[in-house]
Simulated scan of single mutants.
Amino acid sequence: MLAVNFAVVAGVFLYKITREPYVPYIHLLVDYHFGFTKRALIGAVMALFFAKIPVWLVFALGGAVWLVTLALFVKLFRRTFGFDDAHAPLLVFMAGSPFFLKNFMHTLGHFDIYGCAVAIGLLLAPAYSLAFVALATAASMILILIHHIHLLMYVPTIAVIVVLRYYLAQGFSRQNSIVGIAAIACVGLLFFAAQFLGSLAVPPDQFSRYLQSRMADPTRTDLLSFSYIWYQPLAREIADTWARMPSNLLGIPVFALLIWLHAPLWKYFGDSIRALAIEFHRRVVIAAIVAVSAAYLIMFAIVFDYSRWISNWAVCMFLILHAVKSLPASQSVPPIPGDERKVTLLGWVVTLVPRVGIVRPF
């Protein structure tokens, strides 16, 4: 199954490089030329190395980030579970999930994977001091500068990782509580600055001319067709989302089916929560899952890229499972049985589903 998953990933990559990278490419062009601007950090970093941005850089940068994320996840899985036969089914349902690495390959160049990579890095980092809280805060702020929607997409999961790995282990003191509150305030203020102060003050045609001057091939003006998103207010985004809601809701049964295909993994997740030794830890984990899911429900009401949001929600659940396994348990949790016919069948279906998509299923 893992071998087939690698073949599927290769196929998705070959398909992806034939497509026009409209949204990912323009994000590499936008920088801080006109002052503080939302969604401009990656473009500003690229401007330090490239006077002109070629289209192939979308796939090179996106591919490099994808490989880094894969390497980090492999290291994380090895540390949490190990690469033994007993945990091979869990690896298939997690690493081979169409929600995870395969969909990140399909959305190559988009900003979602940066949040995932940061969260995995924090699951691997030592969590014994307030430096861990400071690191998570700085990383969250960088993600918001990449794209402010990370406040709902991966910052809540990062907060959960901090709570489970640091606060539940070290306990709540006056000092670390003040630091935590300050961290939340800093991240929140930056989000509001990006959302409401990061809009462009120059006319759209001037903005487009500047982006064109940054292109390696200025004749490809079709790749600038999404420049309007830097001028679109939040109210317009919400209105567009609700206008598309009737057609997008038709995909819910498909999303529900894809989630059900991971039933053995969800059962293992539930068993891991029930096996926690401390009742307070169980309550915190359940509250964390509800909070992260609520953030995604808010995102569903604001932006209509439903396939991406469902996929990233599932990835967040995978990462929270790793954080849960760092907490003390009263008993061991039986691994997913690899010899059951249902598990094998679901594993093959999950393996053969190549991706979930960006807006609508597939």
Rank of each mutant, 00 (worst) to 15 (best):
H281S: 15
V23D: 15
G180L: 12
G338Q: 00
L223Y: 03
Y167G: 07
V292Y: 01
L29W: 05
V12E: 13
A51K: 14
G62L: 07
Y167W: 09
L123K: 06
T69H: 03
V187D: 09
F192P: 00
F93Y: 14
L124P: 13
A275S: 15
G11R: 03
A275Q: 12
P361N: 10
S208K: 13
L14H: 07
D222K: 10
K16E: 14
A138F: 14
A40F: 07
V353L: 13
A294F: 14
T69I: 02
L327D: 10
K75V: 07
N103V: 04
W260T: 02
V133P: 12
L61R: 05
R308W: 06
R282K: 15
G115F: 02
A193G: 11
Y210A: 09
A131D: 15
L122Q: 07
A243S: 15
I178G: 03
L151Y: 02
V285F: 12
Q331F: 06
L200K: 09
Y231A: 15
E20W: 12
R209N: 12
V353T: 04
P98K: 04
P203A: 14
S199R: 09
S272K: 07
D85N: 04
E237R: 08
I149W: 06
L265I: 01
A139E: 08
L135G: 08
V160G: 02
M1I: 11
Y22R: 11
A119G: 11
V68T: 11
V350H: 01
L346P: 00
V254Q: 13
L76Y: 12
F255K: 08
K325V: 09
L261D: 14
G109E: 04
T219S: 15
K102T: 05
A47V: 03
A134V: 07
F99A: 03
V163L: 15
S140A: 14
H106S: 06
R78K: 15
L276T: 05
V284S: 00
F104N: 14
T69L: 02
Y32S: 09
Y128M: 07
A127I: 11
V4F: 04
R209H: 11
L327A: 08
K38Y: 10
R282L: 07
R19G: 03
E20C: 02
P253K: 12
A134S: 08
F269V: 05
S227F: 04
L145H: 03
N176Y: 05
V285M: 12
R308D: 11
F34L: 07
L41Q: 06
Y228R: 01
G171C: 06
I142H: 09
C116R: 01
S332Q: 15
G115P: 01
P218R: 08
M317L: 11
S177Y: 00
H322T: 05
I113M: 13
M46N: 10
F49I: 06
D217W: 10
V68Q: 10
D205K: 09
Y128I: 02
L57E: 10
T219K: 07
V65E: 15
K325I: 11
G82V: 05
R274M: 10
V92L: 14
I161Y: 01
H281L: 10
G357L: 13
F192C: 13
T157K: 00
A216M: 14
W313D: 02
K325Y: 08
F362W: 14
